[in-house]
Design a protein around this nucleic acid. Structure first.
Length: 872
DNA sequence: CAACTCACG
DNA sequence: ACGTACGTGAGTTGG
């Protein structure tokens, strides 16, 4: 039989250590997890390395211990445990149970005493004992059989205390650790010791005299009058301190060593708790000894001919990858009362039944991702109608912070586990491959079945939160429109981009040469690291700002260095042009399809606020602010050479939304009167008449307005306006005095977030803010600014989404050829024939302005031209 | 893959 | 005192 090895862990100390060693982490429900996570990684590592046969985690019980009767102030003056840590203890306990490890606590005793008692018992039975703690007090227990591991900074890093190590480090025996504490005390436990005696003096005294008792028996031999005086004055306190620091090895335990056998983790429980806590890496890394086919069996049939399909069903179309404008379609699965079937793509294409079924408005379909499905099928002339449920969008409305678009991830939010992650089926990176047909068929079938199973639950959840309408009448119809916009695409002139690129290449080369000349050497200008060395070391320019890895060379820093050295303006110009070249010329050229168009993908279930985002290519950040970049828009042209592009944008939509939501009389009046809002703000903030507002005052007022929308802070405003923090704070105060309704609204929305845990938009979109009550200033402040910003940004998003749906209907009703191509947060881009431009000029502003009625009017500006550049 | 920078609303 | 403006995506460098 192999030798028994006992592992004893100090639960409280390790959880504390982990909490303070790791940055604040939270799971998706907003529960803090850093202490549990640190504890888990430490536990995992130590079990793997030590392979113990017995284990126990000891905890402190209650507030008072036998030590308090010796000294009532014991552990006095401690900060109370932060709530972010307290809330984690139940999870630590659950985790220990899931690991199959015994845990124990005992009234009136601390974890140390439990550990000490068991260590002593184990030693008499000749076991190897390892003690793990974050508290060095435990090192007093070290013997030839008992080793003490003390965690260092990163939790998994440990310092091993054997008697030899203690001898080397302090020149003392483990038993003398207690005497050391008796003399020097311990601030963290409020053990007084002898005031004025620190570690050095204590070690010196103990080396000479062995113990506290020895020191007092040999007072004559103590050198130094002051020291002697202090020792004599505090003799009783020294003895008491020693007693307090002494670990009790005869605690009246109700468990025995035999109870501590460790036989490995309960994998199912462990996996459940990892899942609950959101420990994704641990979930992946751990080799759970459970049948991977934990999933319920699913019966499904692969069809080679299709005769009939149900009138109401869950439908999933399995795609090769997420690039649905280019990828292959593998097949479709249908789940209904009639069971689950899978139809390979070649059968889909040949089957009239399938095609008619997909296109039939009267057939009710519940899908996983309407937009992707519709756009992918459209490339094969397959129409998709009758969609009544979209898993991706429904999940996003339930909680926009939930990440991912894999069906497995989405359904797991509702506790459903019988779908595999795409990554587990297809692999990732270089290993990615399409598996055998039957594997794909089952995977797709499980997705459809999951939707069929979950649909009602999810819809019920939406109704409970009064979000069903937002989902069903806004997001779901919008998905169809966005899909059509993406499939239509926008034409980009290759020739125009290439001509611009050629001119740019030449200019960039000249500027590059000028930079090398000014620097006196060549280097990689694109490397902030190398550029920093040139600017701040070689050329000795003043360092304005640092990043965590070195010097900042960001544009606002370089702006402040303008005039200090000729190289600066060259670098700024180089950056500007290089960005155009790489992102907007070369990047965009790579995205042009064979049809001469780019087909972006609007991410409809991504942002926390309800906005869309645009990828591959991002068409929501095409340059406009600087003329050089703005010219890129000349490459965006109508799909028909005779047609025009029409652009319409909301004026000040976010500030109008703010005016509506806060009800501030002055702000509402300003918009009703049609005033220039920044000028009006300047008048109020600077207390002047309209004609006395100069451009600087207006600029400052504009920045204040932005700040208000973002969730104002004096620091942020001061950075933006390049003024002092005090001046910025002053601006804000005067603004809020002028618009007291804004102040009230901001206070109210933060308060509401603290009570409910979320904020809402005009159409009842939610964003959860778990950190709003955090004790961490930064996290809490960030959540507060978000609480102020999200209803504004999110409501503006609601409005334009509604406008898109109304516009789509209006274009159809009017029988126009014009189509919607793009949305850029507050603007819509259409294309159409010249004769429709005047019609658009009438109906687009009308529809956009009437999308949702606010307490202030919405205003839309518009224009059209032969290119996007000209539609200004 | 993270950090930095910069394009947009 | 704490250290930031809100929301995105893409290209480049460098460990």
């Amino acid at each position: 039989m192999t030798k028994e090895k006992l592992l004893l862990l100090d639960g409280n100390s390790l959880a504390y250590r982990a909490f303070f060693a790791l940055p604040p982490l939270t799971n998706q429900q907003g529960i803090h997890t850093n202490a549990v996570y640190g504890f888990t990684t430490m536990l995992q590592k130590i079990i793997t390395e030590e392979q113990p046969t017995k284990m126990l985690v000891a905890f402190d019980a209650g507030k008072t211990t036998f030590r308090h009767s010796t000294f009532t102030e014991y552990k006095g003056g401690r900060q109370k445990t932060p709530p972010e840590l307290s809330e984690q203890f139940p999870y630590v306990r659950k985790l220990i149970d899931a690991y199959g490890i015994q845990r124990y606590e005992l009234e009136q005793y601390e974890a140390d005493d439990i550990i000490g008692t068991l260590a002593k018992q184990a030693a008499t039975e000749k076991m190897d004992v390892i003690i793990v703690s974050g508290d060095k007090d435990l090192t007093q227990l070290a013997t030839d059989n008992v080793t003490v591991y003390i965690t260092r900074k990163g939790m998994t890093d440990i310092e091993v205390y054997t008697p030899a190590h203690i001898e080397e480090k302090y020149g003392l025996t483990p038993a003398q650790i207690i005497d050391m504490k008796g003399l020097m005390g311990d601030a963290s436990d409020n053990i007084p010791g002898v005031p004025g005696v620190g570690e050095k003096t204590a070690i010196k005294l103990l080396t000479a005299h062995g113990t506290v008792e020895g020191v007092y028996a040999n007072m004559d031999a103590v050198s130094g009058a002051k020291l002697k005086e202090k020792l004599i004055a505090n003799e009783q306190q020294a003895y008491m301190s020693k007693e307090l620091a002494t670990i009790h090895t005869e605690a009246p335990l109700t468990i025995t060593l035999a109870d501590l056998a460790y036989n490995g983790a309960h994998d199912e429980e462990l996996r459940a708790i990892y899942q609950e806590l959101g420990f994704k890496t641990l979930l992946e890394k751990t080799d759970f000894d459970i049948e991977e086919q934990q999933q319920e069996d699913l019966v499904f049939t692969v069809l080679q001919t299709v005769e009939q399909l149900p009138q109401q069903a869950a439908l999933h179309v399995e795609l090769e990858n997420e690039h649905y404008h280019t990828c292959a379609v593998l097949g479709m699965s249908v789940s209904s009362d009639a069971g689950t079937i899978y139809i390979p793509f070649d059968v889909m294409q040949q089957s009239d039944v399938v095609q008619a079924w997909l296109a039939d408005e009267q057939v009710t379909k519940y899908v996983t991702d309407r937009k992707a499905t519709q756009a992918a099928l459209a490339r094969f002339n397959l129409a998709l109608n009758g969609v009544a449920f979209d898993l991706l969008l429904a999940t996003y409305i339930v909680n926009p912070s939930l990440s991912g678009d894999d069906v497995a991830t989405l359904v797991s939010e509702f506790g459903y586990r019988d779908v595999k992650a795409n990554e587990d089926v297809y692999g990732k990176g270089a290993k990615r491959a399409i598996p055998a047909d039957d594997v794909v068929a089952e995977h797709a079938s499980r997705k459809a079945f999951a939707v069929w199973t979950l649909r009602e639950t999810i819809e019920e959840r939406l109704r409970q939160n009064q979000q069903y309408e937002l989902y069903k009448e806004l997001e779901l119809p919008l998905a169809r429109i966005l899909g059509e916009m993406e499939s239509e695409g926008i034409t980009v002139s290759k020739e125009t981009l290439q001509a611009m690129g050629a001119a740019l290449t030449e200019r960039v080369a000249h500027i590059e040469a000028a930079i090398y000349e000014a620097a006196g050497e060549t280097f990689n200008i694109n490397s902030p690291k190398q550029l920093g060395v040139i600017l701040f070391e070689k050329l000795g320019l003043p360092v304005i700002k640092k990043t965590k890895t070195g010097y900042s060379t960001a544009a606002d820093v370089l702006d402040k260095l303008q005039g200090e050295h000729a190289i600066i303006e060259h670098i700024l110009l180089y950056r500007q042009l290089a960005k155009l070249q790489s992102t907007y010329i070369e990047g965009l050229l790579k995205e042009i399809h064979a049809d001469g168009k780019v087909h972006t993908r609007f991410q409809q279930a991504l942002t926390s606020t309800g906005r869309l985002s645009s990828i591959e290519p991002n068409l929501q950040n095409i340059p406009i602010r600087l003329e050089e970049g703005r010219k890129i828009r000349q490459a965006f042209v109508p799909s028909n050479p005779d047609w025009y592009l029409f652009a319409a944008d909301y004026s000040q939509i976010e500030l109008r939304v703010l005016a509506h939501m806060c009800g501030d009389a002055a702000l509402i009046e300003a918009f009703r009167e049609g005033m220039d809002i920044h000028t009006r703000t300047a008048m109020d903030v600077f207390h002047v008449e309209a004609d006395a507002v100069d451009s600087n005052m207006r600029r400052a007022a504009k920045a204040v307005n932005f700040g208000i929308v973002y969730g104002i802070s004096d620091y942020g405003l001061s950075q933006n306006l390049n003024i002092t923090r005090k001046e910025a704070a002053d601006f804000i105060t005067r603004y809020l005095e002028s618009f007291p309704g804004v102040q009230n609204y901001m206070d109210a929305v933060v308060k509401q977030a603290k009570t409910d845990g979320f904020v809402t938009t005009i159409l009842n979109r939610r964003r959860y803010l778990p950190e709003i009550n955090s004790s961490n200033f930064n996290l809490r402040s960030f959540a507060e600014r978000t609480a102020m910003n999200t209803p504004i940004q999110g409501s503006a998003a609601d409005i334009i989404k509604k406008a898109m749906i109304d516009m789509d209907a209006r274009l159809k009703a009017e029988g126009l050829q014009s189509t919607l191509l793009l949305q850029v947060h507050d603007e819509l881009i259409f294309e159409g024939p010249l004769e429709e431009m005047e019609v658009l000029a009438k109906i687009v502003p009308e529809v956009m302005e009437q999308a949702i009625e606010l307490a202030v009017p919405l205003k839309v500006d518009f224009s059209y031209g032969k290119t996007w550049y000209d539609a200004k």
